[in-house]
Write a protein that binds this DNA or RNA. Structure first.
Lengths: 196, 196, 196, 196
DNA sequence: AATGAATGAGAGTTCATTCAT
DNA sequence: CATGAATGAACTCTCATTCAT
């Protein structure tokens, strides 16, 4: 009954959803715990019953994004298609999932430095694994000769992910291009830059 | 005499320098006015004598970055070299000046949303002009046929600037590559992505 | 079965033991109900099933101490030994039982003011009876002339009990002196101070 | 002018006085910062302008008591009177000054454990020096043979100071005995207990 | 008998800003 | 020009207690 109230979501789900929206809109520091609990329709005590701190909420958002992206990338990387197809699809997919979770991603890249040291280290470690898996695809293609080796693979990865992070700064759902179209274009740019 | 003290810098200069370093290291919200004045070796009264508010300090940092980048871009765009040379040099130069002013740039992209509405509008307008001038170069090349038209010019610009914004997240002065080398690689990637 | 678990103690006993240790170590205000129930291995609901409030736990500790001390004193006072022997034994015994229940005694003297008014009055009344019974021994000796009458009896009692309260501040079980030795010395000091 | 307001006391003095009274009446934990600033007629900001924390206020009270007692004891100990006179006067004086500063002393013995670890260590070190100076007097008399050596000197000191700490529990200014009378009696008890 | 989610009031602390000097 | 005392509102977080289950 009380679970059915407020849209059938549980209290921690509602809190996480409210925090995500507010953190994305206003930034972590500019969002008060009071705003979050009001948006979720609960009291402060309830928040601290489920989350140890405001920091914890942020960490939960990160965990969700990291898990999602890691799974998608694994999926593409493990395919047995030619490496250029695998990289292209991974490069496009990270754009689509970023746009589909634009709030989470905005928070991710804007508020990461607000995490405490040990949580930050953990997030960074996961992030690094993600980057390395992506870089491995680039290096594989460079070794096979299907990609140019003119640019070090890690710079290529940073180049592409730079544009992915930047999506939050300009992409709007009501804009001219759909998520898929943007993804296609950005993946194209990457593939063309890698042509030997 | 007091200007000669503390390295010969004026009080407002010292305040701005201290604020820049602290904002870049800790973020705008995490930096207190008290920290700034202590780092600058003055008192709060002095800060409020020269700057209307903490917000004003942030705005000054922005103004400095915007002015610098605008000037550099104008310089390259106005040259009468072939468009591919002009774009390549502009693309590389924005990387170098970003790295040379990495603190300012970190602040720029991380704390923009802390500005009040009217200042934000002003900054965004200047930023848009900058983007458009850059885009004009891409479009000029596309019209001439020296660049591929497969990707809309504004997406190309966002792709490149994405990687520029991202520099603050990974570039370290003590790293493997010099600013010039990174700039060369990133400009290369852009030019290769634009090959017809 | 659940009584046999956790060392065969009942839930209220476990709660009282946990509360006693924590109150003595950290003080009443610094100890949260959450800590108590965790230390006792039960939940908050269980605590509030057996005790009306956190205050009640404190009161139970007091009741235990008061009952114990009252009984011991009665035992010595009712003996038909000479008054100097009765007083000496009572004075030494209160030291030993205080040391043997040092946690309870620490709480008693440090947290008494946390009780509500009516419970406080009740505790103080019992405490006063205890003092008066002790004082009666001193006065009896003074009337007989075996003790000096230079100092009013109530001051003598406060003098001795002051040192008893103070035990919690310095006595450690691992120290140089056993409880019995300390008791002997303190009782000696009292008796010597009372020599005519 | 603003200094003349509120009785001519400075803001930090008023805060310290208010805190002392409230800590003595209600205990440290039961006294809120809000109560203190209201009693002092200032705002919370003012309190934190002068004191780093609520803890700091407590520490200031301690520093005042410690300084006072140390000075008085030094004064008596350095005299060239016979040791029994020096000890008697010191033992009586600590009672008088304790009664004259009963609020501070209550706080001292009841709330010491609320200090943070490093401040606590500092206070304890000063306290120990005080005890040792007192003990040295007892030992000197024991060596000369004017005091009995039946009880170890440190136990004697704890015995006396126990009764001093205890004063806060029963002494009232309106009571039967003046501070000087109580001091005389307690010093008498000590000296008689030390008779060979 | 026992759970644990949820409350709501209040805790200590921070901070940008003002203003008399 | 510059000081620094003082403000007042907002901040994150804690906690004893209740109640439906």
């Amino acid at each position: 009954m009380s679970a059915a109230a407020e849209g059938g979501w549980s209290v921690p789900q509602r809190l996480l959803a409210a925090a995500t929206r507010l953190f994305a809109d206003q930034g972590y520091d500019r969002t008060s715990v009071q705003e979050i609990v009001e948006a979720a329709g609960v009291t402060k005590g309830a928040l601290y019953h489920y989350f140890g701190s405001k920091d914890d909420l942020l960490h939960e958002v990160y965990a969700r994004v990291l898990r999602l992206q890691q799974e998608r990338l694994d999926c593409f990387a493990r395919s047995d298609a030619p490496v250029e197809k695998r990289l292209r699809e991974a490069a496009a997919d990270v754009v689509v999932t970023t746009i589909e979770n634009l709030d989470d991603t905005k928070i991710f890249f804007r508020s990461m430095h607000h995490l405490g040291p040990e949580k930050l280290a953990q997030v960074r470690a996961e992030r690094r694994r993600y980057h390395e898996r992506f870089r491995a695809l680039v290096e594989e293609g460079q070794r096979c000769g299907v990609f140019s080796s003119a640019t070090p693979a890690d710079l290529v990865v940073d180049y592409h992910f730079g544009s992915v992070h930047h999506l939050g700064a300009w992409y709007h759902a009501e804009g001219r291009l759909s998520a898929g179209e943007v993804a296609g274009h950005l993946a194209d740019l990457l593939m063309r830059a890698l042509r030997p």
